[in-house]
Simulated scan of single mutants.
Amino acid sequence: MGLGKWVGFLGLAIALYILWEIRQVLLLVFAAVVFATAFNSLVRRLQRVGMKRSGAVALSIGTFLVLLVIFVALIVPPFITQFQQLVELVPKGLDNLQNRFQDMQSMIPGYSQFVPGVDDLIRQIQPLAARVVGNFFAWFSNALAIVINLLLVVILTVMFLINPQPYRRGFVLLFPSFYRRRVDQILSLCEIALVNWVGGTLINMVVIGTVSGIGLLILGVPLALANALLAGLLEAIPNVGPALSVIPPVAIALIEDPFKAGAVIVLYIVIQQLEQYLLVPFVMSKQVSLLPAVTLLSQVIFAISFGFLGLFLAIPLVIVGQIWLQEVLIKDVLDPWQESEKFKLEPAIDAEELDVTSETEHS
């Protein structure tokens, strides 16, 4: 290997190392690109109506901020109040649970030999509770960093949305001149796919939030509206979000009645099954098709590598990556790859010829 190749290899290694070190910043930039792409679709529709781009951008962002403030106002205060009630009612719930255990121990002979008592369970839960509280304070200490990251995403989104063409042209110029038109076409495909994904996700969020709210109201679970909004919001994270959304209503229902908590679990299981077999096929017909195993593995890999932000952006990252692989590697490299006459393979042996050869060898 010559000196030039070694220098090129070293430069590539240094570039990959730098990209890995700034991976969180790159993810924040990608999040801003996703949001800007979604808002840009709305801005273009408003422009078709006759509105100027500056007014359409202001209207789109203003509407989003108003909805965000309404969402936070509906979610945060009720959950703070409910958390205070939860702290007060947990000892009462433990006393009721201990009384139920004692009743079951008196009704079932030998029950205490196989099932631990409440005191034993509390002693086993205490280390876990201490660890959870410690993690809570650690997460709380990082709240400032989270707020700064959110502000960065908002600012970048606004910058990309006001005038997206210079950023797009700058990205296209990173490629050789003969391939720039093709890169612009691939970026258009990525934009369409991301807009379809955002639209489908919004449909899922609205439907799941509405159905969850109706079900929680029928069951008489407190804070049905807040829990429904939370379920709709977490629907943006497939597989993981629905599992997280069931925890608050179950915890709230468990204080009042354990059977009601079981009913909440059944409700969410039914909702997820209806989503899987009715809603997802309808919504995914307008999106880039992703295999369920690929979706789950991508979430696990990105969550381990990049944390919660990687988990949230796993699906759009996979969508964009799939388009680039399909367009560049498959269509532009592998499909036009013609077999050379020098390396053309011999035709495969037929089954009849193979049988004749084996009979000859045996004879």
Rank of each mutant, 00 (worst) to 15 (best):
I301Y: 08
S298Y: 15
A251H: 00
F259N: 06
Q276K: 07
G307K: 14
P281Q: 09
Q287E: 12
V300Q: 07
F259T: 11
D257I: 12
L254K: 02
I269L: 06
L297W: 14
Q287L: 09
V246L: 00
L278P: 05
Q322Y: 10
P249Q: 10
F302R: 05
F306D: 04
E275Y: 04
S285T: 01
I247N: 05
P258Y: 07
I269R: 01
L278W: 09
S298A: 15
P316N: 09
Q272D: 07
V266W: 05
Y268A: 01
E275M: 02
L297Q: 14
V294C: 12
L309W: 12
S285E: 07
A303P: 03
G307D: 13
L290E: 00
L278K: 05
P249T: 07
L313A: 04
Q276R: 11
S298D: 15
Y277E: 07
I301M: 12
I265Y: 06
I304G: 02
L313V: 13
V270I: 15
Q299D: 00
G310K: 15
E275S: 15
A293D: 08
V283L: 03
Q276A: 10
Q299C: 02
T295Q: 13
Q299M: 12
M284G: 04
L311T: 09
S289D: 06
Q322I: 02
A261Y: 10
K260Q: 13
D257N: 14
L291Y: 10
F312H: 05
Q273S: 05
P281A: 10
D257L: 13
G262Q: 10
V288D: 00
S289Y: 14
V280M: 01
V266S: 02
F306T: 11
S305M: 13
L254C: 03
A251T: 07
F302H: 10
V318M: 13
F308C: 00
F282Q: 04
V288F: 10
A314L: 11
P249Y: 07
D257E: 15
